[in-house]
Amino acid sequence: MSLVQTPLTVDTLNQVQQQTVALATQEDLNLIQLLMKGGWIMIPIILLFFLGLVIFFERYITISKAGKSEGGLLAQVKSNVLSGKLDAAMAVCRSSNSALARMLQKGLTRVGRPIKDIEGAIENQGKLEVSRLEKNINILGIIAGIAPMLGFVGTIFGVIQIFRDVEVAGGIDIGSVSGGLYVKMIASASGLTIGILAYIGYHILNMMVERLILRIETDAIEFIDLLDEPSL
Results as ranks from 00 to 15, higher is better:
Glu119Cys: 09
Gly141Asp: 06
Ala91Val: 11
Asn124Thr: 13
Ser83Asp: 13
Leu100Thr: 01
Val111Ile: 15
Ser131Lys: 13
Glu129Gln: 14
Gly112Phe: 06
Gly141Phe: 07
Val111Arg: 10
Leu133Tyr: 01
Ala147Ser: 14
Gly145Thr: 10
Glu123Asp: 13
Leu82Ala: 12
Ile174Trp: 00
Ala169Phe: 02
Asp117Ile: 07
Leu150Arg: 05
Ser95Thr: 11
Ser83Val: 08
Ile146Tyr: 03
Cys93Asn: 00
Val130Met: 10
Ile174Lys: 09
Glu129Ile: 08
Ile143Gly: 08
Gly175Phe: 05
Gly126Phe: 01
Gly158Thr: 04
Gly145Cys: 09
Gln125Tyr: 05
Gly171Ser: 15
Ile160Leu: 15
Phe157Thr: 13
Ile139Asn: 08
Leu133Gly: 04
Asp165Gln: 14
Leu150Gly: 07
Asn124Asp: 12
Arg132Cys: 08
Val111Cys: 14
Val153Ile: 15
Ser176Asp: 10
Ile172Glu: 01
Gln161Tyr: 10
Leu100Asn: 00
Leu133Glu: 03
Ile142Cys: 06
Glu119Tyr: 10
Asp87Lys: 15
Leu104Ala: 07
Gln125Arg: 10
Glu119Gln: 14
Gly179Arg: 03
Gly107Asn: 03
Ser131Trp: 07
Lys135Glu: 07
Ala91Thr: 14
Phe163Ile: 03
Ala91Ile: 09
Gly180Met: 05
Asn97Ser: 14
Val168Tyr: 03
Ile137Gln: 02
Ile162Lys: 01
Ser95Ile: 05
Leu150Thr: 02
Asp165Cys: 00
Arg94Val: 11
Ile142Gln: 10
Leu128Pro: 02
Leu108His: 04
